[in-house]
Computed example of a mutant assay.
Amino acid sequence: MTATALAGCSTGTDDTNNAGGGGGGGEREQIDSLNRNYTVTEDSWKGSELALPNGGTIEYEGIVRNGPAVDFYVMTSGEYSHFQNQERFQYLTGVSAPDTTSVEVSGSVQSGDYVFIVDNSNMGAASPPTNFNDDAVDVEVELTLYE
């Protein structure tokens, strides 16, 4: 169960590479992106830290290539600590997609630090099957941050 920075999304790593960017006369400026294949074991999750110091747009596509439905969540870093502790948590409904195998999302968020999560646990809406197998899930994610 890990959360890693956007540009370094491997288990147990916290590589931060958040590029800043100025406003662009009405044009959105891409400030970071992530293209990853996650394997998420049953009863766990993988996450990536997202920093939008001036607010912006989070866009992502996710598809489960193998395994059960998962939850795609975006939450504040403060709510992520509740999630990690298996407590009740809140997520941003406009940029999250619970209990699905395929998603395409685009939404605006205020300035702040967020965490993007692929959840294969029973913490959210989707739950792994109770078949006594380790139902790992293979997920492809393409995520882009715009200012």
Rank of each mutant, 00 (worst) to 15 (best):
S77P: 09
H82K: 13
Y38V: 04
V95A: 05
A3I: 07
A126V: 10
G25T: 11
K46W: 04
S48K: 11
V74Y: 08
A125Q: 12
S44G: 11
T93R: 12
D138L: 12
R65T: 08
D14M: 15
V105A: 03
G62P: 01
P129A: 08
L6F: 11
T2Q: 07
T100H: 08
R28C: 01
D14S: 13
F132Y: 09
T76G: 11
L145T: 09
V70T: 03
M75S: 06
D32A: 13
R65G: 05
Q84L: 10
D15W: 10
D119C: 10
T41I: 13
I63N: 03
S108L: 03
S44F: 10
G21F: 09
Y91M: 04
R88I: 02
P53W: 06
A7N: 11
A19C: 09
G21A: 08
Y91C: 00
I58T: 05
P98A: 00
D138C: 04
S33Q: 11
E147Q: 13
M123Q: 09
S44M: 13
E29R: 14
A3G: 01
F89R: 02
Y38P: 02
T16H: 05
T144R: 08
P129S: 06
G124S: 07
V70S: 02
Q86T: 07
S121K: 03
E61F: 12
A125R: 09
V74C: 03
G112T: 10
N17H: 11
D43Q: 11
N85G: 02
C9N: 04
P53A: 12
T144S: 11
V40E: 01
A3Q: 07
S106R: 15
P128S: 13
D32H: 14
Q110M: 05
G8C: 14
S111K: 12
G8H: 08
E27R: 13
L50M: 14
F83E: 00
V115M: 01
E29S: 12
A3D: 05
P53H: 08
A51I: 06
Q110A: 15
T130H: 05
M75V: 03
N35E: 11
P68K: 15
I117T: 04
E59H: 09
E79V: 08
Y73S: 01
Q86P: 00
E59W: 03
A125D: 08
D135Y: 14
D138Q: 13
L143H: 06
T2D: 08
E27I: 07
V105Y: 00
L92Y: 05
S121R: 02
N85V: 00
L52Y: 04
F116D: 00
P68V: 14
D134A: 12
R65A: 05
